[in-house]
Design a protein around this nucleic acid. Sequence first.
RNA 1: GUGGUUGUAGCUCAGUUGGUUAGAGCAUCAGAUUGUGAUUCUGAGGGUCGUGGGUUCGAGCCCCAUCAUCCACCCCA
Length: 457
Amino acid sequence: MKPSLPQGTRDFSADIIRRRRFILDTIKDVFELYGFEPLETPALENLETLMGKYGDEGDKLIFKILNNGLDNPLKKEEIQKGFNKILEGKNEKNITERALRYDLTIPFARYVSMNYGKLTMPYKRYQMQSVWRADRPQKGRYREFYQCDADVAGTNSLISDAELALIYQQVFRRLKIDVDIKINSRKILAALAEVCGGSDKMSAITVAIDKLDKIGIEKVKEELIENNLSVQQISVIESYLQIGGSNDEKLTKITTLLNNVETGQKGIEELKIILNYINEVAGQSSTSSINIDFTLARGLNYYTGIIYEVKAKNIEMGSIGGGGRYDDLTGLFGLPNIPGVGISFGVDRIYDVMTELNIFPEDINKSTTVLFFNLGEKESTVAFKEMQVLRNNGISCELFYENAKLDKQFKYASKKNIPFAIIIGSNEVEQKTCIVRDLLKAEQQTIPVDNLSSYFR
RNA sequence: GUGGUUGUAGCUCAGUUGGUUAGAGCAUCAGAUUGUGAUUCUGAGGGUCGUGGGUUCGAGCCCCAUCAUCCACCCCA
């Protein structure tokens, strides 16, 4: 058979893994700097755990796993019944009861619900694992990809919201990616909906205004008309969308626009508090700005407070990070009144951005430091012994496995980016010396073998 | 889920209105060179043209289906 990969999945070769690790390590270091603890959960979850958490669109994108034993003749009848339900678009336990992880937030919520008694609250966890979505692949979109999440469960303190924004700043500063960190509040969006026809219109409104960048104000208005909003309501939304200026100016204008709506004022107040925390430390570092963007909506329907989204500047790519606050996530799993807030990094998109901008560090692909040449049985035995001395000193080495032509051994070294070659031939064996060749400078010197490890120190 | 694009050697790609035995560069291997590389020269291997059907005397080329790719929409990291 001809080998192939499932759609939207990829193999990662050594050079890609080293670059991905650079990103993952950077994120992990910053998460730990802020006191988050690691967590890993299974790739599989019960389908029931995931269904209904990501909206109707989301449910369709969950990878479901077929049960085993469907060919059991004793269960034939109920399995056929179940299959008929599947054909109607319903889920049926007899056919599928497990699914691949769709994101890291719901498994986190599930974990908190199951382990509440054991956890030190507020619980701050980070998680870096792959997730799967049955989406059609395209630029920056894969069916298997990594997310890196940091969430805080069990506190309403807006300090945590502010810290998460700072984590975004710090990570992208370390990665040297210029980003736009957008912030908004679901409470403000809810208040807008309240002013414009009631809360049942909220999702239609948010979906429409979220597209402002892409399709422009006229198309947004068309979409709102299709959703049965009145001219007057649409004009309120239009003035909402026209709010501009600095963060302070935006806050002033929105306060006026939503001055009768209590939830809106609450959302504005929260935004102010968070931005104040961020401003406290602004002088210490920030290059990438945190900006209020009232068009930001975010899809996941469990957010209730602050929402974030991060986009890379100067490049065409979907968001590379997103997150927000949810008042009651674990309630769905029987543990009410636990608020949470979290952010997510999309590693694969960050990788694509860094590749396109060509901003990975130069020296990222060094692996082996020294290649010992193989010049025969006796010679390579000596080399083998000296190689182990270097390894014991923490220098990564390889001995070429065959007594091949030097030409070939040199090429192997250059292909693997190995900077040093050590040549031990019969003369060197006799004199207890070796030739150390710097392959980048094309210079070499003969030194006593006993001095090898000090040479590389 | 909807629409478009592409699929020929390990890689990047040529291949004329359908016409003998499908090509190039790079890479690989062997030799020129029996201890010093990224150079040069010579030679070799490697393809059921994504897969399965169809039209035709004849298909890499035309038609249908299918799979994969890249891209856009929906949605999202």
